[in-house]
């Protein structure tokens, strides 16, 4: 069974795409350095950089004007339709999750989103992924080739990945391709990405129990005093207390810090999935029955503010000595 990898070189998270796909290939035991990676990019000055970390050695770089799903899809379908691979892998970011499903449809194949693991033999592939809001894991069989998978987010880089000595790249230029007709105007506001959270060693995560925006702002101060990055659960972001790029969980950042201090979060699987790769989890919550307390390494049952104030004081004291 042969496969291809499709990456988005226009995205600031390109390096994460490479490392998570590599790790997935290794853990699925299907690492084939001779497989091809297709990369869509729009900054030719940076294209050499794009070739440095790819999961496979054969590369096809396709220059486009900017990343629009409709454009990328039609180019990809056009390129691949004559001679499709058996399996296509897409990273689990926004672009990859969309592309996998739509591309599969266009090639008459089958797709699965947010795949955690893959088993395959000559005839079929089986994948697992989270279902029931992450409470359960489901195993799925895909029925038609090409199989198009987007990966679950938060697949951690694999330390054993071998170094690729030499990469061979071919280039296509599709930058003349016009913007899709349905778009009248398009503007992008570059946001601080989730990377800061995803690369932090120490993260403070605030949940709905922080109650309001003022408390979020205070939490920001406390987190910086502790030297931690700050993230929040979905309700906190959707209530407008915190910006969306602070969101941790199934639909936000998947973090893997050494320490995660979870304050006033209930710990539903959708959120917990975002922090469960933390090495140590500390929960502070007034409710001992809440899921986060059972899923933490250490828990304090109390008002988070009072505990946090004392923690910042203690850490501050130690810093001054």
């Amino acid at each position: 069974m042969n496969y291809k990898v499709v990456l988005n070189g226009c995205s600031p998270n390109f390096s994460n795409q490479c490392s998570s796909v590599s790790a997935f290939l290794i853990s699925s035991n299907i690492l084939d350095r001779e497989a091809q990676t297709l990369i869509f990019y729009n900054n030719s000055a940076a294209k050499l950089k794009l070739t440095a970390e790819t999961p496979t050695s054969l590369l096809h770089l396709i220059e486009i004007n900017n990343y629009e799903a409709e454009t990328v899809l039609s180019i990809l379908a056009e390129l691949e339709k004559p001679n499709p691979a058996d399996l296509y892998l897409f990273p689990g970011d926004y672009a990859g999750s969309e592309l996998a499903v739509r591309f599969a449809y266009r090639l008459g194949g089958s797709s699965l989103a947010a795949v955690e693991s893959l088993q395959m033999d000559q005839h079929q592939i089986k994948c697992t992924k989270g279902v029931y809001n992450g409470y359960l894991q489901g195993t799925f069989k895909l029925s038609k080739k090409p199989y198009c998978l987007s990966l679950a987010r938060g697949i951690l880089p694999n330390r054993d990945s071998q170094v690729i000595e030499k990469r061979e790249a071919v280039y296509s230029d599709r930058s003349e391709e016009r913007q899709p007709a349905y778009i009248v105007k398009r503007t992008v506001e570059k946001a601080e990405s989730l990377d800061e959270l995803e690369s932090a060693k120490f993260v403070v995560a605030g949940g709905r129990g922080i109650k309001n925006k003022d408390n979020y702002l205070k939490l920001q101060t406390s987190a910086s005093l502790l030297g931690a990055a700050l993230g929040v659960s979905r309700p906190v972001a959707l209530n407008g207390w915190a910006p969306l790029n602070k969101l941790i969980g199934a639909s936000g950042a998947i973090i893997n810090p050494e320490i995660c201090l979870a304050l006033a979060v209930s710990g539903s699987p959708a959120f917990f999935g975002g922090i469960e790769k933390s090495r140590k989890i500390i929960a502070i919550n007034t409710d001992p029955q809440t899921a986060i307390v059972n899923n933490a390494d250490v828990a304090v049952i109390d008002d988070y503010k009072a505990v946090l104030d004392e923690l910042t004081r203690l850490i501050g004291e130690d810093k001054n000595h």
């Binding site: 489901g138 799925f140 029925s143 989890i281 933490a296």
Partner: peptide, 24 residues
Amino acid sequence: DAELLKLEVVHRKRKSMIINGANA
């Protein structure tokens, strides 16, 4: 498209130590 073969409960492994004290 994709056929569900099996469902399993996801087990989380951490066992929390609850800290006891007089106050926060």
